[in-house]
Each structure stands twice: as C-alpha cells, then as structure tokens.
C-alpha cells in the first residue's frame, strides 16, 4: 500500500508545482475580498477547486447573492462528474468508503495523472490527491499571510490581480485552439450584452452556460484542461 501511495505522490509533483501559484493567488485575493486567513484556508480545504474559488471571490467583490455564487460554483464544477465516472469505473473493486474519500479531492490535475497511468489502485490515487490537496492548502495559507507583509500601495493595486489570475489560467490552454478562442470571445461579448438587462452575477451564470452549450456545436477539437497541463 505504502509504495503505491508514495508513487502517487511522486507522480503528482509536476502538477503540484502548477497548483501552488493558484493557491497563493487565491489566498491573497480571498483576504483582500474580506475573508479571514482561516476562512480562506477552510474554503481551500473544503472545496478544493481553484477556478470555482477564484470565481467566488470575484462574485463576492461584485456583491453577488449567496445563491448566485453557489449556483455558479455548481456549474463550473459539474465537469467533475465526467472525470469521476471514468476514475470510479477503474476503481470499482475498491471499498465504497475508499471511493468516497478518493472523490473528495478529485480535481482536473489528479484525473489527468490517474488517467495517464496504468496503475488502478486506490492508494495510488490517494497519493496523488493528498499531494495536490496538501500543496493547495499550504499555498493558500502562504498567499493569505502575504497580505500582512505587503505595503499599502501594493494592496491598492490589487483589484487587477483577480483578472490577471483568470487570464493566467485561461490563455495558455486556449491559445492553440482557434475555435476555443472564438467561443471565449463570443461568451465575453454575450455577458457584456446581457449585463444591460440582468444583474452582473446572473448574466455571468447565463453567459457561461449558454456559451458552453453553443461550444458543443462550435468546438470540434480536443478540449485541454483549464488549470492543468496537457490534454485528456
């Protein structure tokens, strides 16, 4: 068991290096948006989904309703049902409790590593998940503590940071795919148009769902992972 757990941890090292900057950015931005250091850490420990957490911070700063943030989180994380289906098919011999534990921290990165390996074992996946989970929580804490040391002029310029984080997640994974670029630009314009009629948080949710629905027919190529490396 130990060997497989350790080889899972080892296999996830490159992905951990990708997760750490996201965790630091989230920690910083969460505290800037008014969460305490503990709340920022707790969100990472309980939700474990970088893109959704950054979205929630953006929506909090816009003054979105609790229901809108939770609905948005639901949609952005619904993709995990596809990843989990394929992982659980391979893990069908594991005990139900083990499967439920493995599901908790299952994310794009751990799915990618598990899918590309020959190893079906529960402990291998647990090793991958634990390393990613630990890195994400630790980097969130580091990010939230950094706000204590930064001078005021830096904090004042922080409003741009969230958008910079979204661009940093989005552009590297779409730049080689013209259809995705087209879809992303179209969705942004759709969101802008709908904001003339709807509150920003609801137009955001509607734009992301409509955009993805249109994308099913517009984007033909493989879809790369949004906050990981490689294509699955």
């Amino acid at each position: 068991m130990n060997n497989k757990f350790l080889s899972g941890m080892k296999a996830s090292i490159p992905a951990c290096l990708g997760v750490i900057p996201v965790g630091i950015s989230f920690g910083l931005l969460a505290v800037k948006a008014g969460l305490t250091n503990f709340e920022a850490m707790l969100m990472s420990a309980m939700v474990m989904a970088g893109a959704a957490q950054l979205m929630s911070i953006s929506m909090i700063t816009q003054g979105a309703a609790l229901s809108a943030i939770i609905l948005g989180t639901f949609f952005i994380n619904l993709r995990h049902i596809v990843m989990s289906s394929s992982v659980m098919h391979r893990m069908r011999k594991a005990a139900p409790v083990q499967r439920l534990i493995a599901a908790f921290a299952l994310c794009d990165e751990s799915f990618a590593i598990y899918s590309l390996s020959e190893e079906d074992s529960y402990f291998f996946l647990l090793g991958i998940n634990s390393a990613l989970y630990g890195s994400f929580i630790a980097s969130t804490v580091i990010g939230s503590l950094m706000t204590d040391f930064l001078p005021q002029i830096v904090i004042d310029s922080f409003s741009i940071a969230l958008y910079a984080a979204f661009l940093g997640l989005l552009l590297p994974s779409i730049k080689h795919n013209f259809q995705l670029i087209f879809l992303v630009v179209g969705t942004a314009l759709l969101n802008w148009l709908m904001q003339f009629f709807l509150p920003p948080s609801w137009s955001l949710i509607l734009a992301m769902v409509l955009g993805a629905a249109i994308g099913v027919f517009v984007v033909e190529d493989e879809i790369p992972l949004v906050d990981g490396e490689g294509t699955v």
Binding site: I76, A188, N191, G211, A212, I223, D227
Partner: peptide, 22 residues
C-alpha cells in the same frame, strides 16, 4: 456531447468573469 458541454464551462466562465468587469 454532455461531457463536452461540462468541460467547456470553465472556459466560458473565465471569459465572462474577465469581460466586461476588467
């Protein structure tokens, strides 16, 4: 098709999060 729809949501979400708020 459903799988593709779900995997596209993070992209369209980021797009709508960036513009026009930026």
């Amino acid at each position: 098709k459903v799988g593709k729809f779900l995997r596209l949501i993070p992209y369209t979400a980021m797009a709508a999060l960036i513009f026009p708020s930026v």
